[in-house]
């Protein structure tokens, strides 16, 4: 066991996979000499050289498209989005090329690539640097979308993503890079498609992901103090969603609250609620509730920013409201 910061857990994952498979390479802005904007690739340029840790010009759509071409021809690129928001510039390459091309080509090509980097609302970074692109990309066929939330799952998930044969959008959170955790010294993988039951409980299922996992866990104390026993599930995979784990929980609790950092309209919760209604409606004792960010560009002002995203107190209140409404 070694205490490891989340960004170092990611670096270990990249390093181990590059050591294991010589077709794995990293490209993006400032990944080489600079070591990555959050130091996820620190030291790898020196270790693997300029082609395997490729510093690119600031040309998001072209270097993302280039990664698609490299993946089609047998390499395994890891694209670092310096900030995931910048990858809006590569929306076409991620959606039309990485996501859809395997299907459009009738299975001629598959595209084993990872697109990773920091997303989410940070501390007063302004609207453009505070994006939650998982909501925008969830409708694209052919993509897998994963959000890590702890050093342990960050490392194991990234290793699995690099080995996957499909394009994986891998979301880190800008405020979680310095989380610390003891990691196993032996190699491990975390599956991309399994939700993580973080806390077992019987009264209400709380579904969440990324940084909101930690907000929910903060709220758990307050929820317990109210006398309720929540089950907390970190979705991990945002596409496809692990409805097996969710279904098993709903059969136990019959109540669901979804806590997300993306905006309410067209968000991850919107999709999950629709699917829960399709699959588990008869199991529900109450309408599914969602706590989402406000439908606004994230404001710079600190107070307004904190009002934009969900706070732990609101989660406690939501559970209380849902539990009190029952007869």
């Amino acid at each position: 066991m070694a205490e490891t910061l989340l960004f170092n857990a990611l670096r270990e994952a990249v390093d181990e996979e590059m050591g294991r498979d010589e077709t794995v390479f990293v490209l993006g802005e400032d990944v080489g000499h600079y070591g990555g904007s959050y130091k996820v690739t620190k030291g790898l340029y020196e270790k693997y050289g300029p082609l395997r840790v490729l510093d690119t010009p600031i040309a998001e759509n072209s270097f993302t498209g280039m990664a698609v071409g490299a993946a089609m021809t047998g390499l395994r690129p890891i694209v670092e989005g310096m900030n995931m928001g910048f990858l809006l510039l590569a929306f076409n390459q991620i959606a039309n090329n990485a996501g859809m091309l395997p299907y459009t080509s009738g299975g001629n090509y598959h595209i084993p690539m990872v697109i990773r980097g920091p997303g989410g609302v940070g501390r007063q970074l302004g609207a453009e640097h505070s994006q939650r692109l998982e909501a925008y990309f969830q409708a694209v066929p052919g993509l897998k979308i994963v959000a890590c939330s702890t050093p342990y799952n960050a490392k194991g998930l990234l290793k699995s993503a690099i080995r996957d044969k499909n394009p994986v959008l891998f979301f880190e959170h800008v405020l979680l890079y310095n989380l610390k955790e003891d990691l196993p010294s032996d190699e491990y993988l975390v599956p991309l498609d399994k939700a993580d039951v973080v806390r077992s409980g019987k009264d209400v299922t709380i579904l969440t992901y990324s940084r909101m996992r930690h907000h929910v866990l903060q709220a758990v104390k307050g929820i317990e103090a109210q006398g309720f026993d929540p089950e907390v599930i970190d979705l991990i995979s945002l596409k496809p969603i692990d409805y097996d784990t969710i279904g098993a929980s709903i059969r136990k609790t019959h109540r669901v609250i979804i806590v997300e950092e993306c905006m309410r309209t067209g968000g991850i919760a919107a999709e999950i609620i629709a699917s829960i209604n399709d699959r588990f409606f008869d199991e529900l004792d109450a309408p599914v509730m969602r706590l989402s960010s406000q439908d606004i560009p994230t404001p710079y002002n600190g107070r307004l920013e904190s009002l934009t995203i969900v706070q732990p107190k609101q989660i406690v209140e939501a559970v209380e409201k849902m539990m009190m409404a029952q007869v």
């Binding site: 498209g65 698609v68 490299a70 993946a71 089609m72 021809t73 090329n97 090509y109």
Partner: peptide, 24 residues
């Protein structure tokens, strides 16, 4: 044959990736 790209210009980066792969 790498495609078959319907949007203007999107094939060029893909081609560049194939060329990068050769050099890699």
């Amino acid at each position: 044959l790498l495609g078959g790209f319907a949007f203007i210009g999107e094939g060029i980066p893909v081609a560049l990736g194939a060329a990068f792969q050769s050099r890699y």
